[in-house]
Design a protein around this nucleic acid. Structure first.
Lengths: 338, 338
DNA sequence: TTGAAAGCGCTAACAT
DNA sequence: ATGTTAGCGCTTTCAA
């Protein structure tokens, strides 16, 4: 069942079929209808390999995901897939480990699958112009932007939240409540990822509240993994430091923290307040409900695709799209005990 | 950069390059090495569209996922992606809503992307031979099997757990503890999905413990969504029925149930025991830790791919692979109050 | 062991 | 408005 069969069946040339398939204007309505009918009746589906071969690129965009364990990224990923299908594009997903280089993986994907563009989901921030030159296609940083790199704004696109400002806001919520001894649960303080950025927001929120940073209150999990967050919080608690609140840079990590606190008999929010950033579905159902700054995950995915498709269409330009979080008030906040 | 360039560069014909690329035996070692070197130096990457065009099928397998919201399926999905890449295949994922027909979607995917095979992730069980005939390629049911359909075992493959037996086991855990009034939290009792199967296990476990099924203790969420599970449990609790335990057919739903119970002042496990099936990562961190039968999600994904690839290789045969769960003892179980 | 040449199904000049 | 035709990059007979 090829275009030829359809041509024969409907009594026109294959070119006409192709024109109908690609919505070219130069086809008489009458003929178009006939062809459409033939396609329908024959259950004809175009062969995308053949279709792609002619062009130099496929209608496919690649998504390189770092850290699929993260429920938040999953939600974004699924939104991306939906939007990509809706636009009649294809998506190829590629997961990478925390030590792999998303740029190298992306570049290789682009070549083998001849992608039109890339979306990086959860990556580093320190790309240089030389590094992205290897990509050769437009790309969108989704959930982050190139804060630590030396890229010109015009060289790439991104859809992200202001990690620094949102973290600041989260921590300010705690200081406003009167908390002075606020711990932070994060991956690493200097990994050039959202972890570092949110840490900066934490530091400055403390500073602006007149609180001196206490390095002993930094809980480094070394990853965004929920198990690691639990272990890190556990060890932190063993040290017996004095604190009244925790800012967790991610919901999943915060859930682990609540559990770790509970394990040693500390109750949230009575003994320790907690606020996080992300807003994953399950954190609505923790006990108490996690208070968190909800990222618009669906929108983030959808917008990332839109932005990429726009850039692709115009063959120029780029777009930095900053989204806002919304505070979801749960039950993990309280004033510090007198 | 095409095969021609490589041919020119290394001074052989494109046929030879093709042979090297496809590991054909009829190439002198010396020549092979030369070609490999050229490929390396030129950074040549074969054009997969062209490659696919020649063959009648692409080295691609499709995954049709029903219910991506489910963290458990996500975990399986990622395992599938990893295994597919490892085997040098490509994967296309397609999400469908709960009302869409996975078979129709799958058939359309197969044709447009010319897939070699399909994996269905989270689907119905009631396929008929006529329906699967439209697919035209081998497929694997992952996380379920065709219990309600009329397929011959040889007509398809599946990787699954024995939902009936595992549910039986879960509920038996409760009856063994002395529980008599056990509610069940599920999607629907007759949707021909795992929900129905696990419900059967629940019914028979009650029966074998000499307990009469009380229809008032069936909590139907109408979906596997965590929000719906919460609402359903909430309404159930409003009715004021007497019960001492809940069997939740999924971890995520169980988490919602704990929350709903807590909302009305009921404590798990003191006022109500709870057991579930799935074993998603986050349920280790609920308070108390969810007691659940853990499905080997990674293995399930990996095996599904292996099974499919084997079937593809042999061009015949099929495989029904039943995996086992492992009880993870959390803190949601207790004897019923006297 | 190697090469020449004929497609695979489709798109896009170009011609009519 | 429609048809003819030359590729797109690769695989695969078939010959040598």
């Amino acid at each position: 069942m090829t275009i030829k069969d359809v041509a024969k069946y409907s009594g026109v040339s294959i070119t006409t079929i192709s024109r109908v398939l690609n919505n070219h204007p130069d086809v008489r309505e009458e003929v178009r209808a006939k062809v459409l009918k033939a396609i329908e009746e024959l259950h004809y589906v175009p062969n995308s390999s053949a279709r792609d071969l002619g062009k130099m690129q496929t209608d496919t965009i690649g998504v390189v995901v770092r850290g699929v364990g993260n429920p938040f990224l999953n939600s974004v990923l699924h939104a991306i897939e939906k939007e990509v299908s809706r636009a009649d594009y294809s998506m190829v997903m590629h997961q990478i480990g925390s030590n792999e280089d998303e740029l190298a993986e992306g570049a290789s994907l682009v070549r083998s699958k001849r992608l039109k563009g890339l979306i990086f989901l959860g990556g580093r921030f320190d790309y240089t112009p030389e590094q992205i030159a290897t990509l050769g296609v437009p790309f969108v940083c989704c959930t982050y932007t190139n804060t630590f790199g030396s890229l010109k704004k015009t060289a790439y696109s991104s859809v992200y939240i202001d990690d620094y400002a949102e973290a600041f806001r989260a921590v300010k919520t705690l200081t406003d409540l009167g908390h002075k001894k606020i711990a932070v649960l994060l991956g690493t303080t200097d990994d050039h990822s959202i972890s570092e950025l949110r840490f900066k927001g934490y530091c400055d929120a403390l500073k602006s509240a007149g609180i001196v940073l206490d390095k002993d209150l930094i809980i480094e999990a070394k990853s965004f993994n929920i198990d690691d967050a639990f272990k890190a919080t556990e060890s932190f608690l063993k040290k017996g430091k004095d604190f009244t609140a925790i800012f967790s840079i991610a919901d999943a990590m915060g859930i682990a923290a609540i559990k770790a606190l509970h394990t040693v008999g500390l109750n949230v929010p009575d003994d320790c307040s907690l606020i996080a950033i992300d807003g994953i579905q399950v954190s609505k159902y923790t006990i108490p409900t996690l208070t968190t700054l909800v990222q618009p995950s669906k929108q983030m995915g959808t917008r990332a695709v839109e932005v990429l498709l726009n850039v692709l269409k115009d063959e120029c330009g780029s777009c930095q799209l900053k989204l806002e979080t919304a505070l979801r008030e749960g039950g993990t906040l309280a004033k510090p005990k007198a």
